[in-house]
Design a protein around this nucleic acid. Structure first.
Length: 216
DNA sequence: TTGCCATGGCGCATTCACTG
DNA sequence: CAGTGAATGCGCCATGGCAA
């Protein structure tokens, strides 16, 4: 557990980001509330402290090459007969190499991306002050699960946090893919970053609901 | 000379599989 | 079932080429 390292040593960038993201709510800040996109939001990563038993991303037929984002929010469908999940990933990229690796992982593909929710994670409550287990909040499950919930990913959105120099470079010359969003890393490492209106606005646009007109 | 960028490769933490 | 080494995921360092 890297969280137990001595206080005098330097924290890796992504460690700091994960510590901040733990303070974020179950619903991503800025995620629109609309009847057209019903479902349940849950924060899958980072968890309380343990790495074990947290949701992750994988490809069908392979137990390797799984992806473990710094931040992962899941939006579950409400219909037990039509199971899927939308995902919002947050990746802190301290180097260009790291950014290239992450962009490749989330690039559009002809294969299906899956999200795996371990049983242990679904049996645990989402909040300290509410004993309701996650599987009960995920409305597409009618009974307590006894095996991992594997869902196809319907929609992918990724927010990359970049160091200032890299952020400027990307903003100046790169054309983001439709699922890609960028912010300076300070927006993620800041205390109470979940209350930043600019960040909430950006995440608000990282939603399928944001692509529809709101009639007056 | 200096700074930027692309490539190859390595270290660390964690998890898994195997052995006795 | 504990101990140990291999496997896996992730971050980013070291290096060299190139342009300002």
């Amino acid at each position: 557990m890297r969280d137990s390292r001595p206080a005098h040593s330097t924290w890796p960038l992504d460690d700091l980001v994960r510590r901040r993201l733990r303070q974020w709510p179950q619903r991503p800040p800025g995620a629109p509330r609309t009847q057209r996109q019903p479902g349940t939001w849950l924060r899958a990563r980072p968890g309380v402290a343990n790495f074990l038993g947290q949701p992750f991303l994988k490809l069908p037929g392979s137990s390797t090459f799984r992806t473990i984002p710094d931040g992962l929010w899941l939006h579950f469908s409400p219909d037990p007969g039509d199971r899927w999940a939308d995902i919002l990933c947050i990746e802190a990229c301290g180097t260009v190499q790291n950014l290239q690796d992450k962009r490749a992982r989330f690039a559009p593909s002809t294969s299906s991306l899956l999200v795996v929710c371990p049983v242990r994670w679904m049996l645990e409550p989402a909040e300290h002050d509410d004993p309701t287990p996650r599987w009960h909040l995920i409305r597409l499950l009618r009974e307590e699960p006894t095996e991992p919930l594997v869902l196809p990913v319907r929609d992918v959105r990724v927010l990359y946090g970049l160091k200032q120099r890299h952020y400027e470079s990307v903003a100046r010359g790169q054309v983001p893919q439709p699922h890609e969003y960028f912010c300076p890393i300070e927006a993620l490492t800041a205390e109470r970053g979940q209350e930043d209106p600019a960040l909430a606005a950006l995440i608000g646009r990282a939603s399928a609901a944001a692509n529809f007109m709101v009639p007056a």
